[in-house]
Write a protein that binds this DNA or RNA. Structure first.
Lengths: 187, 187
DNA sequence: AATATAGTGTTATATGATAACATAAAGCTT
DNA sequence: AAGCTTTATGTTATCATATAACACTATATT
């Protein structure tokens, strides 16, 4: 098996069995640490945006996020407000942008090298960040072969996560769809 | 060295030394073959769009493409016209979409498995499609480890191609920039 | 307190993509 | 070839994503 990032286990993320309150809490503490170390300010707005992004393990678009913000504060929130917060969080390595979806997701290991590698389930919407040493080695080899120096890397694998794939097989076998509402249940 | 796709050699693409007329000609012939085999129609418009995309090895946005079309035909061309042609060409595997850039580029090996792997030079704008067996193997391993089944894959490495990196080093050494106009010279 | 810097609010607009419906062209059937 | 069906393109309107420019406010520094 290839190496993975540590906790929380991605399979448990996808399986909706994990304590997501813990995910959020950890992320917020880590975020504060990262910002402090970088001499950056995790303002109220930025923290609010990060928390909203962490509401689930599904990538969140800027405009849905904007509406959530507006809903929380009863004031109007314009695009630049959101995009500036997103830019800050991206710069700090606290979130990633999923190019395939034009959406944003919390980084599960903000301290490590900031590769941008995701498994994206097209059924339940969950995006699982992964790191794999051997894979990274091959990436580096490829770049080296071409004399290419990498500044940013994005690997996005779109398909079906284990849970949805299994459920889908059941559909094929049973003749009815157990997963009709699966897409609505966050994390 | 990792395995690569066959001709034309990516390094020669980036070096602006290759016979790009040949690239275009080959692409158009292959496109016709692919369409014929698939029972699809490479209409005048679609061929025109494919040819325009193949004008360079730099990803081309839909709107620039639209203007080029309008310029060629003196009639107005609306977005759907372009996007439908792009969709067709994507379906046939004749072009790729570069998610990082919201842009489109000709596929250099439309017959092979349709991975979407690119080295994108942020200096000269050229995108080099690559295939590497060992890398692909690691991708597959990673997916397997997570029980994830891949439907579509996109690897985008952004950085500097060999030529631009070398030129940049010269800048650092000489104290002046030899590459000021490099971004303008297509392939 | 005065000043500088960083962050946020606000308006307008750029950029990328699609929905819905109308028209035209190509392929089939007789 | 005439009529029908299917596919492709034209056209208008609109949605979705993102940024530019400038005003104002809060925070940090002196």
């Amino acid at each position: 098996m290839s190496s993975r990032i540590a906790a929380p286990l991605p399979t448990s993320i996808a399986s909706c069995q994990h304590d997501h309150t813990h995910c959020i809490a950890t992320a917020m503490v880590t975020a504060q640490e990262v910002c402090t170390r970088n001499g950056a300010r995790l303002t109220k707005l930025r923290e609010q945006v990060l928390r909203l992004i962490w509401q689930s393990h599904k990538p969140l678009g800027a405009y849905p996020l904007m509406e959530m913000l507006a809903h929380e504060s009863t004031r109007r929130v314009a695009p630049p407000t959101v995009y500036r917060a997103l830019e800050f969080l991206l710069d700090q390595g606290l979130i990633h942008r999923i190019n395939t979806l034009n959406a944003y997701i919390g980084c599960t290991h903000p301290r490590a090298d900031h590769a941008n590698n995701f498994l994206i389930c097209e059924h339940c919407g969950v995006a699982i960040e992964f790191a794999a040493d051997q894979l990274q080695q091959q990436i580096n080899n490829t770049a080296r072969d071409f004399g290419f120096s990498i500044a940013a890397q994005s690997i996005e694998l779109v398909g079906r996560c284990e849970q949805c794939e299994t459920a889908q097989l059941q559909v094929n076998t049973n003749g009815h769809n157990d997963m009709d509402t699966a897409g609505d249940g966050d994390d």
